[in-house]
Nucleic acid binder design. Structure first.
Length: 561
RNA sequence: UGGGGGAUAGUUUAAUCGGCAGAACAGUGGACUCUGGAUCCAUUAGUCGGGGUUCGAAUCCCUGUCCCCCAGCCA
């Protein structure tokens, strides 16, 4: 656990405090996360999960996981499985309270019958288009359906026929009888049940009438004894409807509190859009490391702690906002800096031959695993006559402020020796293919006995001992801060970054990485944090770059341009 | 133009209900450093506009402006 113990306060805490003071729920706090299993969870859901589970924890209450599985045409078991895995991975604990709205289908059905008997619901035979016309507009009231005044007996009979499958889809719906002239469109006789001759992942073919979300949600919370039903802003207008249903049924009322959903720059966070990215092949699946999905972030190397920390950092409020992506990057860097062991890897190798180093000799030098954590200990790394350094760590004609290797210049090889570049070898095209250097045997381990300083310390690997690896570098998926801000006639797809994935096929990593397992995270010194990908094979490990290190040199370069 | 919400540094948010507008991220300058990392120090920057009440207003009142959501048999 690296994150702060206490979550930053919010207006929600104020409300809960007040409810506890007034004894509204007998001092109980019980929250829940209610996903629809129609896609993978993303960082926006993480905010809701962290909020709900941490509030339960802080107040000594309970937290439920409940699937809102009321629409079998969009929901699938594989999504249920993925969501369970993600919520668990994030660290939210629902204990034995994993529920499904479909668990309540029978109860909901009975309540619907009760409403019909009370003259509060009716079967409508209008078509979908007709219902829309009758609904009116934002500024004009709706009109009553001609079927609105059917008798209780007729409604009971028709609803029973709906349930038995005697109607085709669209032929009838059950509606609440509220007020077609309400300024709140949700109160204009909302549909409670529609007919769907579709098999449900959990209830199979038991039902062909399925409750609408609005009819299922409030009662599901009520059944579970949820005290504080936290949801996003767009459901604010639905609250009067939930209250109406609960009142008519005479059952327990949770208190719904709405908060603003998370938005992130350079990112889309809507399931509809994420599904398109997956289905149109713009990314390689839901767990593509470029995706803002929990699965994608996990594969990329994010930790649950960093995600929780981030959610805590951005806070909760009611105003629409867009968090800068940098905030997320800060959260993961902060976490990984403290926990990830350091290793050396060279992405774009440039061969260095140390002319005065004995041929065939290998020295095993000690390297610190994590300067932020002494308990991580040390390891040894091999040093030999031929090494690789990073191409960008050498400049034949160094520009100002570049203080890495250059002809005649001395630098330190981390945990190795001081070396001085004596010659530059080029191929027939003038490309630099090799550096000739000399080393100072007195500087073993990277220390100069005479106390002389070098400006730069470079990472390196021994050519003979290094392992080849594939490294995947990710850039932001979208070019624009707001991907929806697309040219006329185009959508967010037009703003995809064509260079969001760069595969480095022939990187070299230090030999100790041969023992790494998929999911292991490291800092490759001076490059960033990396996570071993499940695509790895014993012959060729694959590393995903989670996030680069903060790079002030890059910043200086960009400023010079 | 109906209804529901919202507006505090560049960004995300605090301000214990009228009492010194505080933090994080981002930015900038510096110190330190065997990672141009990390760390440390310093620093730039804010209450949507206009009135009013008050000794005192981000907070209360009036008024205006701007932004978001709602017309699925989606959630």
């Amino acid at each position: 656990m690296t994150e702060q113990e206490t979550r930053t306060r919010s207006f929600i805490h104020d409300i809960i405090d007040e409810d506890i003071r007034s004894g509204r729920f007998g001092g109980r706090v019980h929250t829940r996360f209610p996903p629809e299993p129609n896609g993978y969870l993303h960082i926006g859901h993480a905010k809701a999960i962290c909020l709900n589970s941490s509030i339960a924890k802080e107040y000594g209450g309970k937290f439920n996981l409940r699937f809102d599985d009321t629409n079998p045409t969009k929901e699938e078991q594989r999504y249920i499985d993925a969501i369970i895995e993600d919520v668990r991975w994030l660290g939210a604990d629902w204990e034995d309270r994993l529920f499904y709205a479909s668990d309540y289908f029978q109860q909901l059905y009975e309540w619907a019958v009760q409403l019909i008997k009370d003259g509060k619901a009716y079967v409508d035979s209008l078509s979908a288009e007709e219902i829309r016309e009758y609904r009116g507009t934002l500024t004009e009231p709706g009109r009553n359906s001609p079927y609105r005044d059917r008798s209780v007996e007729e409604n009971l009979e028709l609803f029973e026929k709906m349930r038995r499958g005697e109607f085709k889809e669209g032929e009838a719906v059950l509606r609440a009888k509220i007020d077609m002239s309400s300024p709140n469109l949700n109160m204009r006789d909302p549909v409670m049940y529609r007919i769907l001759h579709t098999e449900h992942p959990r209830t199979g073919n038991k039902w062909c009438i399925y409750p609408m979300y609005d009819w299922a949600h409030g009662q599901s919370d009520s059944i579970e004894g949820i005290t504080h039903s936290l949801c996003t802003l767009e459901f604010e207008d639905h609250r009067p409807l939930y209250d109406w249903f609960l009142d008519q049924l005479g059952i327990y009322h949770p208190r719904q509190i709405e908060f603003a959903r998370l938005n992130l720059t350079y990112t889309v966070l809507s399931k509809r859009k994420l599904i398109r990215l997956v289905e149109e092949g713009h990314v390689n699946g839901w767990d593509d490391p470029r995706m803002p999905t929990i699965a994608g972030m996990r594969r990329r190397g994010y930790t649950p702690e960093a995600i929780r920390d981030f959610c805590n950092m951005v806070g909760v409020a009611k105003s629409n906002s867009i968090v800068e992506f940098e905030m997320l990057e800060h959260a993961i860097r902060q976490d990984l800096n403290r926990r990830a062991e350091r290793r050396m890897a060279v992405l774009r190798p440039l061969k260095v031959v140390i002319e005065n180093y004995p041929e065939g000799q290998t020295e095993w030098l000690e390297a610190i695993n994590n300067p932020e954590d002494e308990s991580a200990g040390t390891r040894t790394i091999p040093f030999s006559r031929e090494l690789y350094i990073e191409q960008e760590d050498f400049m034949e004609e160094p520009v100002k402020k570049f203080y890495r290797l250059a002809p005649g210049r001395e630098v330190r090889l981390r945990y190795g020796y001081f070396i001085t570049c004596t010659d530059v070898v080029k191929d027939e095209n003038g490309q630099i293919i090799e550096l000739r250097c000399t080393y100072d045997p007195e500087t073993r381990g990277g220390y100069a006995p005479d106390g002389r300083k070098v400006k730069a310390t470079l990472h390196w690997v021994s050519a003979e001992h290094a392992r080849q690896a594939e490294v995947r570098l990710f850039d932001r998926l979208f070019l624009t801060e707001n991907p929806d801000d697309a040219p006329e006639g185009q959508d967010f797809i037009a703003n995809l970054n064509p260079n969001s994935l760069e595969v480095v096929e022939n990187a070299y990593v230090e030999p100790s990485l041969a023992e790494a397992k998929p999911g292991d995270r490291f800092q490759f010194e001076r490059l960033g944090y990396f996570c071993m990908d499940p695509d790895s094979t014993p012959e060729k490990p694959v590393f995903n770059r989670t996030v680069a290190l903060r790079d002030t040199w890059k910043k200086i370069q960009q400023r010079e341009e």
